[in-house]
Amino acid sequence: MLIEVTVNGRRRTAENVWAGESLLYVLRERLGLRGSKDACEQGECGSCSVYLDGDLVCACLVSAGQADGAEVVTVEGLADGESLHPIQQAYVSEGAVQCGFCTPGLILATHCLLEANSDPSDDEIREALAGNLCRCTGYEKIVSAVRLAAMETAVG
């Protein structure tokens, strides 16, 4: 099928798509947007997290057919040109990025948390990020990065 998706504000189309392939596959392999990472393909790791019509979802669990006509925001849509989004900057500043594989998904999950709750407690941070696995950092620095991002976005 032919699908049309608005990704980060731009209308994109992909042809000869199987309706049952994942939105993640469409983003990465058909549209060349490799920011969303492909790890487990079963909703466990969160590295493929994107916004779909405003909801945080695992792109690997959305079918291409379902995504037809949708608005998608990926990690590529957060930075403003060359300058990082404050959440991305906070992850860098706090050393919350090691191999970086989990980072795009975590950035999106953090963004979603801070949109709803500008001053989350540590427990709220951990709960909001429970669907995002990181094999490198041990999470402490990630939680610090979210705290810093909350402060920065409150100030900015």
Binding site: G43, S49, D55, V62, A109, G131
Partner: peptide, 9 residues
């Protein structure tokens, strides 16, 4: 159930 991402869908 699952995570926020799973509960949202």
């Amino acid at each position: 159930v699952g995570s926020p991402q799973i509960r949202n869908r």
